[in-house]
Design a protein around this nucleic acid. Structure first.
Length: 565
RNA sequence: GCGCCUGUAGCUCAGUAGGAUAGAGCAACUGCCUUCUAAGCAGUGGGUCAGGAGUUCGAAUCUCUUCAGGCGCGCCA
């Protein structure tokens, strides 16, 4: 894939600097330096030019001269021939600021014209196989607000990586085995018996699932099968109940994800790891690695070898493998069986304690732990009109993802959950979300898109259509609002690169809000439908480019780009 | 007790592989619709970057420390 406009520009400026440094050395104006890194940055203040370098400050330690002296010497030897650089000057502590001819900004229009729906794609990932595993909610009940945040985050991160040139797989891990399924069975059974024989017939275990959904499953089960399992063997009864309810719960997870516009490439069932014997195989490999030992009838993993406080059990004294053991097998499967180059997990912050031991387990298996990235997302604190709403599954009174999707709209929820970084604690106020007021910036961005569509419709009605970039004199665009927009459009590729590198899709919502703000300013300052035909076509093209970019990024976020509002 | 995350404007948050005068939205106040969508724009006020010390040309950003909040330290998942 070709270099982006900014990459090209940075390279050409670096070349100018490099040539100038070499010339300054040749002229004995500075002492020889062999290795140095040239950084190009964008100054915050416009008076400081379009780009700047801190090369003089970087060299000040090596050369033992004041930065401004070095900067002067470098500047004196600069040659701007065949570049966009109009002038450069030394400023501040020793920055060299570059002021460019505006013409470099027009290039982006041609690029967007050519790439259209794909403008913004870069080849950072080089087709590497990467998995993003997210949500992975327990199938024992409905999803909560944490899953809502994780879903929006994971899905958008996957999109960002896709746009950055990775080969991305979205996966949902279904914990359809193990202890919580046992607990699920016990819960269902107790409700089943209570429904048939009264509340006092059996005591409902304190640590079972108290949610109303369990009771509902029992009722529906009875409607289908009556009391025929009342006298059956306990194992048979529990199996029938779990088979029935689990299937429905998993389908509900799929339906809700569908509503939320999240489409997983794969739903991976924990049970397959047990059935295929991969769990035991993995444990065998860990034994061979020497990182295990037996104590009190259980098999332990030497987590302490990896700097942690205590070791962890892999196989309990009752010979049943732990969740940890299954999880290790799962991750081994991702890397060794399915060959992912890189795996990203999105976990709630309450699981952060497991990161080190999982990485340790990977190392024990000979898998480079750096190939596993775990994003810990701070949990969502649910508020309603400023009051905290508890979200425990046990009380059964939590607000579910499904409730959220019924109360608010998907665009708002997905955008809202990507406003903040994963590391930030997040208060989600239901009243605000439901209001869909201007508190939610998604409308601001969508409004910009709709406004552009409206202008295009108007002009189209007058028989004026968008021309190809090559047929337009873009130099008509000289207003600061126009130039700011062009610059922002050019920035998209860098923004995607940064979002992919830092694994923070929240950069995109911020980028969109900035872009929308620039457009709204432009809208108030410049009229597209003006008398100057040349200017009109240039502006029309400009807003079409803005529309394309807004739509592309909204598409990455899984948010609609409405033509009318 | 140990570990992880967080602390920036009244509120919600950006900015952290060190860079120039710390930004945005909301809230408050003042203006802007007989022409392309006012869910908009322009402007004003608002700061001990939690406190302290250190590293250096330069610290919101790095180190140490104190304080405050969240989370975790099961043969649970």
């Amino acid at each position: 894939m070709q270099m982006t406009i900014l990459e090209n520009l940075h390279e050409s400026i670096k070349q100018v600097i490099k040539n100038a440094v070499e010339k300054a050395i040749a002229n004995n104006e500075i002492d020889p330096v062999s290795e140095y890194d040239i950084q190009i940055e964008t100054p915050r203040e416009k008076e400081h030019g379009d780009f700047a370098t801190n090369i003089a400050m970087m060299l000040t330690k090596i050369l033992r001269k004041p930065p401004r002296t070095i900067a002067d010497a470098i500047l004196k030897n600069m040659d701007f021939a065949n570049t966009y650089i109009a002038k450069a000057e030394v400023a501040g502590a020793g920055f060299i600021n570059f002021f460019l001819d505006n013409s470099w900004l027009y290039d982006v229009v041609g690029v967007i014209d050519e790439q259209g729906d794909n403008y913004g794609r870069i080849n950072l990932g080089n087709g590497k196989k990467v998995m993003v595993e997210f949500v992975s909610a327990n199938p024992t009940g409905p999803m909560h607000m944490g899953n809502a945040r994780g879903g929006a985050l994971g899905d958008c991160l996957a999109s960002v990586l896709d746009w950055a040139g990775y080969n991305v797989t979205r996966e949902f891990y279904v914990n359809d085995a193990g202890n919580q399924i046992e607990k699920f069975a016990v819960s269902l059974e107790a409700r089943y018996i209570q429904e048939l024989k009264g509340e006092d017939a059996i005591e409902f275990p304190e640590d079972a699932y108290h949610g109303d959904d369990i009771r509902q499953h029992a009722k529906n089960f009875i409607a289908l099968y009556g009391d025929k399992y009342l006298e059956a063997e306990q194992t048979e009864r529990r199996k029938a109940l779990v088979d029935y309810a689990l299937k429905l719960n998993i389908q509900a997870l799929k339906d809700d994800m569908d509503l939320y516009r999240i489409h997983f490439d794969n739903w991976f069932y924990e049970s397959t790891l047990h059935n295929s014997n991969e769990v035991m195989e993995t444990i065998e490999l860990l034994k061979q690695s020497g990182y295990t030992y037996e104590k009190e009838d259980a098999l332990w993993f030497k987590t302490t070898e990896f700097g942690l406080d205590k070791d962890d059990v892999l196989i309990r004294a009752n010979k049943i493998p732990t969740y940890f053991a299954a999880d290790i097998a799962y991750h081994r499967n991702k890397f060794s069986v399915r060959g992912f180059d890189k795996v990203i997990n999105i976990w709630g912050a309450d699981h952060h304690g497991h990161i080190a031991r999982m990485k340790g387990a990977m190392q024990a298996l000979g898998i480079d732990p750096d190939r596993l990235d775990i994003i810990t997302m701070q949990l969502v604190r649910l508020m309603r009109g400023g009051e905290i709403v508890r979200m425990s599954k046990r009380t059964g009174k939590s607000i579910t993802l499904h409730d959220l999707l019924e109360e608010t709209n998907v665009d708002a929820a997905r955008f809202f959950f990507n406003l903040r970084q994963a590391s930030s604690h997040f208060d989600f106020d239901l009243e605000l979300a439901v209001e869909q007021s201007n508190e939610n910036p998604v409308f601001y961005v969508q409004y910009a898109h709709a406004r552009i569509c409206s202008i295009i419709r108007h002009l189209s009605g007058e028989g004026i259509n968008v021309k190809n970039a090559k047929d337009i004199d873009l130099t008509a665009l000289v207003q600061p609002q126009e130039l700011d927009l062009l610059r922002k459009l050019t920035d998209l590729t860098e923004e995607i690169k940064a979002a992919a590198t830092t694994m923070e899709p929240s950069r995109l919502t911020r980028y969109l809000m900035d872009l929308a703000a620039l457009f709204h300013s432009f809208y108030n300052a410049c009229r597209v439908n003006c008398d100057d035909q040349n200017l009109m076509h240039a502006r029309l093209k400009l807003i079409c480019c803005v529309k394309t970019v807004i739509a592309n990024v909204l598409n990455m976020l899984g948010v609609n780009a409405p033509e009318k509002m």
